[in-house]
Design a protein around this nucleic acid. Structure first.
Lengths: 347, 347
DNA sequence: TTGAAAGCGGTACCAG
DNA sequence: CTGGTACCGCTTTCAA
């Protein structure tokens, strides 16, 4: 059976409803827009009945053409593959939907993609724009055109140079500081760090948090305790780096990984070296991904407020659309240390 | 600085371009639609220049109103939280974008949500609809109205009763069959299964695959080797069930988990019981999630073809939109056994 | 080759 | 309180 040959189902419009109900177009429009106060109960009922009977679906594009509202927010996403970011996207959808908005999405890996995404999303008349990015510094000149748009724009996790835009970020530095502090409180004095890429603000910030906590406690920062451990190098190298750390003297008693996946590999390497986590070496991750509680041992990690950030971003653009918020805002959300088993503390 | 007070930037339209370039509206429309053949090179250049200068952005809603095309595909997503499904969504976006389509998304957890999602997405005039679902049997009557829509509709992973719609599914049964077969080939004779919810087709199918492989090899199916292990019960119960399995006599030498997260917990429980994976007990997961290669030991699992399914679904609706595909199709994608370390085989 | 005009499906203003 | 009508911004015949 093929369902694709045009069934010639003439699409029914507001005019059809008006005709069938024996009223004017404006009257129908009024009920569509909840202005039925000044209308006979009877009339309303009849119109409603006709709409239902004819399976009427108002064309939101036609409406949008005149109201200049689409009830749609555009989301430009970098590296959407990251499970965490996708979760954030999902949550943003929930918040948006509560306000009867939908999300129109477009991924953008390169600057060129991004330009293109901005072009098409604005051409589709979205009411606002959210950028879900990696914290990389990039050439941002093309963002200037956004200013001419007179459209709410919010950047999530973006190290942009344009400070007059709205931003939602999280405090990586404080996050790792907290993690390091936690280890120090537990008595650790030799803490290593598999750091993220320094090309990203997050990598640099986290390293900074690590140093800061160390310094605060008068612990020396050792170059050889810090090694790259991120997607720019292979998992084998994470493992290799871990082994090298274990060979150091004094051997680090704790390792802070750049993210939860790396932490999993670190734990694995430690265990394969016949050492125990956390008894011989404690491990802390970063992100708090879905699987982290289920690792063996359950991973102590720093939770990124991706959900809160998504919610915040959506609320910011909705606020701007509604004209409630007008000032440009820079929100920095805190990270939370989630204590589980991998560093030995029990809460 | 507030950027929200109307800058009175009159939005420029095709009319403005025509005026500024000293040509007619139709001429501008022609260049917008790549019909510049019958046009002076000069005219074209001038129009292009003016468009660039005025930063002209054609209003795709206005266009869509007449062309009845929006270059947008609606995606209705159930349980978008699942990292795997979100990956699929992300991949769908890639495929769609290659064809210059965008995705308008709406989550729907309940039937009521779903009705609402269908309503608003169609009202926004999407060119096609993709349902990314859980494989649950539900009351599907509301889907009937989709038939009247004359719009391409594809269901991914949905156990719908409406066979005349397009479907993309994967073969859970064969997937678990394969996993079980693999274990049997490795010499296992006592294979347990932490099964998924039987309320979902996937749970039932996987159990079926398990039984099928057992029977094919003349191994008896033991009720006590099968326990529920899914989101309907708590992680503590997964752990508890694992321990119960380990207490059985003869003790299972292998456990097939309902998904990778459960598999992680199973491995953890086994290890905490001072047994080794895979030497004492082999473990196989289901999904092949992002973290699975990084578990200790790396998880052998059945990969769900979520990416391929997403791609397939998008291509199906694009094909229908283009009028190339007309027949309704039912695609069933194979699952792939990914052999890593957790069941002892080395490829 | 280019221009004029009639919609697409709504909204909203203005009479009556 | 209801009906007529001028747009919204673009496409698309149909003439010139």
């Amino acid at each position: 059976m093929t369902r694709s040959q045009r069934p010639a189902t003439k699409r029914i419009t507001i005019k059809d409803i008006a005709q069938a109900a024996g009223v004017s177009i404006s009257t129908v429009s009024n009920v569509l827009n909840d202005r039925s106060d000044a209308m006979t109960e009877q009339t309303l009922e009849r119109i409603l009945a006709v709409m239902d009977e004819l399976d009427y679906r108002p064309n939101l594009m036609a409406r949008g053409l005149v109201t200049r509202r689409t009830a749609t927010i555009g989301v430009v996403i970098a590296e959407i593959e990251t499970p965490l970011f996708l979760q954030s996207l999902s949550f943003m959808e929930s918040i948006a939907r509560e306000a009867s908005y939908n999300l129109l999405i477009s991924k953008a890996h390169t600057i060129e993609d991004e330009k293109q995404a901005i072009k098409v999303l604005t051409a589709k008349q979205v009411d606002g724009l959210i950028f879900l990015s990696v914290s990389q510094y990039t050439d941002d000149d093309h963002l200037n055109e956004l200013r001419r748009l007179d459209m709410p724009v919010v950047f999530v996790n973006r190290a942009t140079l344009h400070d007059d835009f709205d931003h939602v970020n999280w405090d990586d530095t404080a996050g790792v500081d907290q993690a390091t502090e936690h280890l120090i409180q537990l008595g650790h004095r030799h803490i290593a760090h598999l750091r993220g890429p320094l090309s990203r603000q997050s990598g640099a910030n986290r390293l900074e948090g690590y140093r800061r906590a160390l310094e605060r406690h008068g612990l020396t920062y050792r170059e050889d305790y810090v090694k790259p451990g991120d997607y720019t190098v292979s998992p084998e190298q994470w493992q290799q780096s871990t082994l090298e750390l274990l060979d150091l003297s004094p051997r680090p008693t704790a390792i802070i990984a750049s993210d939860d996946i790396v932490a999993a590999v670190v734990m694995k390497a430690i265990q394969q070296a016949q050492l125990r986590v956390p008894y011989d070496v404690a491990v802390i991750g970063f992100d708090d991904q879905h699987f982290s509680p289920f690792l063996h041992p359950a991973l102590t990690t720093v939770r990124l407020p991706v959900l809160a950030a998504g919610k915040c971003a959506v609320e910011m653009v909705l606020g701007k659309i509604a004209g409630e918020r007008t000032e440009s805002e820079h929100v920095k959300l805190p990270c939370t240390l989630i204590i589980r088993e991998s560093c030995g503390a029990t809460t």
